[in-house]
Write a protein that binds this DNA or RNA. Sequence first.
RNA 1: GACCCUAUCGUCUAGCCCGGUCCAGGACGUGUCCCUUUCACGGACAAAACGCGGGUUCGAAUCCCGCUAGGGUCACCA
Length: 499
Amino acid sequence: MSSIRVRIAPSPTGPLHVGTARTALFNYLFAKHFGGTFVLRIEDTDLERSDKKYEKDIFDGLKWLGIEADESPERGGSHGPYRQSERIKTYKKHIQTLLTEGKAFYCFHSENELAEEKEKLLAAKRPPIHICEYRSLDPEEARILTETKSDFIIRFKTPSGRKIEFQDLIREKVSFDSELLGDFSIAKRANVPLYNFAVVVDDEEMDISHVIRGEDHISNTPKQLLLIEALGFRTPQYAHIPMILGTDRSKLSKRHNATSVNEYREMGYLPETLFNFLALLGWNSGTDKELFTKEELIKEFSLEKVQKSGAIFDIQKLDWMNGEYIRKKSLPELVELSKPFLNGNQETKFPKGNLVSNDYIKKIIALEQPRLKKLSEIGERTEYFFRAPQYEKDLLRWKNMSDEEITASLDKSINILSNLESHNVHLNARTRVKMNISKETLEETFLKEIGEGDKGRILWPLRAALTGQKASPGPFEIMEILGIKKAMKRIKTAKDKIK
RNA sequence: GACCCUAUCGUCUAGCCCGGUCCAGGACGUGUCCCUUUCACGGACAAAACGCGGGUUCGAAUCCCGCUAGGGUCACCA
């Protein structure tokens, strides 16, 4: 059995797009499932638009997701170089072959002429394809012309009346008529290869066995097949995967969603979330299982289960899944992951002179772990642990309590707390260990004091005074971390608000 | 406009190849309830789909044809 080699070939003209990442993921899963090789090559012959900074973004994004290439510009490999810009010699050779065999020709039309022609055809409601008059120009004449004219491109002499068919691994049989292809371009100016030509050459020379790519490439396939045939190359297996759609069902665009992997990373999504989520976009295991580890995905993945129709990127499901993965994290891991999101707001969240211990952060994060959907939420949600909360006095009101009742409620809390506090001071003095009062003790004491009544009458104003939030963890857990002193201070502040 | 691809709950999808077990299953989201001072977590329940029209068949989400709708592609971008 011949070995499986797949590739992705992003062009570094923008940050790593989630669509590209998903294509990379499918290629990766497919290759790893069969113990094959995953190649990452960079399509950067379009120098004007390519940028090293984006190349790095692509490498980093893929690495962050856990999609490691076996061969790439960074890692090297047996089939390099892996940047198109470094493979120019190879392309030249094959362009020359096509030219001398009369399968390609020089075209001396100017861009303006071409644009005009296209416009006319479109206006006449005809397919805007270019069948070039230069295709039948005498090769010798053409060669002489290339010396005088600098502005020319090389086109493939598309045979007419051919039916081009291929078996797509996902869509079964797909067929095209060569008549609709026109004499497509394969290189510009001084032998700079164009996409359709370059992929074909690279795929051949890199021994690519399976081409798994987005559905938007279906219509490129017949051109590539023609080139493969003309050059006498081996034909890879094709699999065209559905597109990722925006909420309006069109191609995922910036207008409706974040589109780069990096943006999701910055929003506090975990790499395993995105890995899992992207894998499920257009593929499923055929079971009810939805949460998969990378290893499980590699084991389960198969092209037969890939969907044929496009899939909308549903951010709500992504949020849910991220929450699931956040809950799966061990606390120390989550603390490490959360730190960048806390440090980002160092100024406001950690006021000067208020050094916060790792232990303190750990406790806070433990409290938020079940509620978190995105790491980026952590800063805002835990702000009241670092500074006194700001809020309107009405927040303190439970149901329709009067101001007097609220004051009484807060007094009661102060009462309970000061009793506990003095008891604790004694205890700490005896054991010489300074300890906060545990949430269990707090809860037990409060519940005993409240008795059978409506717990909300005490607990809501208390929690509101502590956090200044409509929603938060419970007061006992908060006070355990915050300490009785600060808690009492906040309750007093609340009382002042009522007055 | 031409060509190509696609079509099950709002969304991701199972089922379709090998018609009956599907008055269509799961998940997200939504709603109600339970837990609960609040929010979340957890639990229970509910509403929610076979695009339309013709066939074939005793029987069609499943097979065939047409229509419609959506998307993609038609570069000296990739």
